[in-house]
Simulated scan of single mutants.
Amino acid sequence: MFSRSFLAVAALSLSVAAAPAHADTACRFASEPRVLMEEGGPNADGSKLLQLWDVPDHPVLWSATAPESGGYRRFRDELAERKIETGPVRLLERSPTPNNRIVIRHADDWIGPANCLEMLMFGHQHGRLNTFENPSEFASIILRSPDRERLRVYYYTINHDGIGRMDPIVEPALADRQAGWEVLIALHSHVFHPGQPKIDGILAPSGPDADFHARFHAQSGVREARITNGVHTVRMPASSFDGFQRAADGNEVGSSSG
């Protein structure tokens, strides 16, 4: 089923990265993140963390090269040990909501393996709080500098299941846009919840997710929305946003739930 998807995802990623991957380059951030806000300890319930990486826009970040160590490697090892289902379409078919059905129809074009950048952030999240034992998610906004040489990667998480209001990363990202940065991607994670088919690694937006994507696009011109479960990622072009079922209560801009 994914014979065409790998080519489509590669083309979509290259449209963002504008360069091929270097297979001999390690998947890592070139510098440590800068912490913008931290409340509570990394393992405490309800703790919050907002940070950013400001790094060269290296092609390896857009490639399928996986991190060689750290939280992501531990995540994949534990995923294998637990024998968790990871087939993205099979997971979606367990819960055929309207939004899940949209992604199923477009799976060949939209779903592909997680890339280095997505795996790094997922690994960072799993290293902070084991996502199998204490499910939690991250949200990210990724921008490219006016000279197209650097990426700015905002990362925000709360130590509970779901993100809630996205203001902590939306506001600085919009300020960067005013300064000439291009808003490339709005990304967040949907982690595995074995035994809970409605939310088990689902690569499709919830109603609040879809609402956020549409509203944030109106503000920022973001090119894509992505959801990753650490193994696969759905990459939805902005042209698709209005087709998804949005939250019935009309959440304000800055809201998202996993």
Rank of each mutant, 00 (worst) to 15 (best):
M1F: 09
F2D: 13
L7R: 13
A8D: 12
A8I: 11
A8G: 07
A11K: 14
L12N: 09
V16I: 14
P20H: 07
D24W: 14
T25P: 00
R28P: 03
F29V: 07
S31N: 09
E32Y: 01
G41C: 02
P42L: 11
G46V: 10
K48L: 12
L50C: 01
L52D: 04
D54Y: 05
V55C: 02
V55M: 00
D57C: 10
D57E: 03
H58C: 06
P59G: 09
V60W: 07
L61F: 04
W62R: 01
A64G: 10
T65A: 01
E68T: 10
E68A: 15
F75N: 10
R76S: 10
D77V: 06
E78A: 12
L79P: 03
A80Y: 02
K83L: 03
G87R: 15
S95H: 12
N99S: 07
N100V: 07
N100E: 04
R101I: 13
V103M: 04
R105K: 12
D109I: 09
W110Q: 06
I111A: 01
G112V: 01
P113I: 03
P113T: 05
A114H: 03
N115V: 07
C116P: 04
M119P: 04
F122M: 04
H126D: 07
L129E: 02
T131P: 05
T131N: 10
N134E: 11
S136T: 15
I142W: 02
R144V: 13
P146G: 05
D147E: 07
Y155Q: 03
Y155T: 09
G164A: 08
M166C: 08
M166A: 13
M166G: 08
V170H: 07
P172E: 01
A173T: 15
A175G: 04
E182L: 12
L184V: 14
H188W: 03
H190N: 01
H193S: 01
P194Q: 05
G195P: 04
I199E: 11
I202T: 14
L203E: 01
S206L: 05
P208A: 05
P208N: 06
H213V: 06
A214Q: 15
H217V: 11
A218N: 12
A218R: 14
S220M: 00
G221P: 13
V222Y: 02
N229G: 04
N229H: 02
N229W: 11
V231M: 11
V234D: 04
R235E: 04
P237M: 10
A238F: 11
G243T: 01
F244N: 07
N251S: 12
E252S: 13
V253Q: 11
G254V: 01
S255M: 10
G258I: 02
